[in-house]
Design a protein around this nucleic acid. Structure first.
Lengths: 235, 235
DNA sequence: GATTTTAGTTTGTACTACAATTTTGTTGAC
DNA sequence: GTCAACAAAATTGTAGTACAAACTAAAATC
């Protein structure tokens, strides 16, 4: 990892986590070079990247400004990770869950309609990895993410596939809220995934959509419950 | 517009439009500096931006490579514009239309549930602009885009709002396919928009979703018909 | 022929320099 | 004291050089 990459992560995280007043002026290039102990060259490349992610607004001869947070590119995996990492933003998590609840069942439907033999291989492998490791939380979780990514690929829609990084970042971020260790929970999760996998394999779009809807509904309700608990507020 | 911005557009467009073999090696930094007649400083910033948009894969000490096109960030307005500008990619357009058909009715539903008075002002203003200019294609089209953006804002979901740029870029790009000049078509479009606007104003989610679905279905079928015509193939 | 060495290439980082433009500060007139 | 005009400073955009680090491929050695 290069110095540019490290500073991009560091500075991007600082901005995304609100260490600079939103919509306010940032230090000048020269000052940032001192603060991060780097050359202007590297600093400018960092700024370019963060501008592309719409965290920074760089105005010629005027200076750098923090973009208003509504305009940050929440479809960028880095931005999402940075924002979600620190304190969870309930409004953002709710937005993400809404989007996920909207698109995932349809993705599963498309996958059931369009999955090729190659697609099925990856889906099955991921599922088997989950089913075989109900007690290894790390492996189980990784396999879960891989399973959903494989389904996404099987949907054969390049646009929606671009959401996969974001969805993965979300899943990682809200993991704490939905975390359950009990073996009965793992069993339930495996059963749900098996239902979806079977529906896709048998090319049954309705069943796939329904299975996916059940999964995402349960996860979403758990996450919202976790949020309410964290806030102490019910919405 | 700075030289860096111009070269980003130029080089990005060249890559997105396939002037370099996908997944192949690109010229070295030094060679690109010569080709675009610029300093290494500027060239590196251009490369950083295009890497962030996932058009380029920059490997340390090895060189620059074109990313496989499935991984290009089609949720980035620039990338979409570059790709769609030249020859239209039927598969990509279909993917975009699918996503739009999926999300727009739900966005309209959310807008009907959540729109504030301020949101309604912008929606109404856009609608009035459309209704008043059925003969001015330019103004009509701009107002159309603004209408949909206003509905998007009213949905109060920051994640899905990030799709607005992409959706706008799509609408601009496939405009040629759905283009219709007849006054009766304008009338129909205005009636459809009025139905959606009324549903949102009266806070009727079901009606809003249904109105939106009718609109997007008609537009989508027209676009697909245009694609088939362009390809001479029916799917 | 296989392995090691060496030279060349390519990117990462640092530094200086100057132009263009905006902001700030100062001066001066009234 | 207020305002206008001008001068100085600050800030970003662009260009160029230099060197380090790491990869590639050719050359040399065994």
């Amino acid at each position: 990892m290069t110095k540019t990459d490290r500073l991009t992560q560091l500075f991007g995280k600082q901005i995304a986590q609100g260490e600079f007043e939103p919509a306010s002026a940032l230090p000048s290039e020269a000052e940032l070079c001192e603060r991060f102990d780097t050359s202007r060259n590297v600093m400018r490349e960092v700024i370019k990247v963060l501008s592309t992610k719409r965290l920074i607004d760089a105005q010629r001869h005027r200076g750098l400004f923090v973009m208003p947070s509504e305009q940050w590119n929440y479809l960028d995996a880095d931005v999402l990770e940075w924002v979600l990492e620190k304190g969870v933003n309930p409004s953002l998590v709710r937005s993400l869950i809404e989007v996920r609840s909207l698109i995932e069942p349809t993705i599963s439907r498309w996958a059931a309609e369009r999955a090729t033999a190659v697609d099925l291989v990856d889906i099955e492998a991921s599922f088997n990895l989950m089913a075989a490791n109900p007690k290894n939380v790390e492996v189980f979780h990784e396999a879960d993410i891989r399973f959903h990514r494989a389904v996404l690929v099987a949907s054969h829609n390049v646009v929606i596939q671009q959401l996969s990084d974001a969805v993965g970042a979300l899943q990682r971020a809200i993991f704490d809220y939905t975390f359950q260790t009990g073996i009965e929970h793992m069993d339930l999760t495996v059963r749900e995934h098996r239902a979806l996998f079977d529906a896709i394999r048998c090319k049954n779009p309705e069943a796939a959509e329904e299975a996916s809807r059940r999964m995402v509904t349960r996860t979403a309700s758990r996450a919202v419950a976790g949020l309410d608990k964290a806030e102490g507020v019910r919405v």
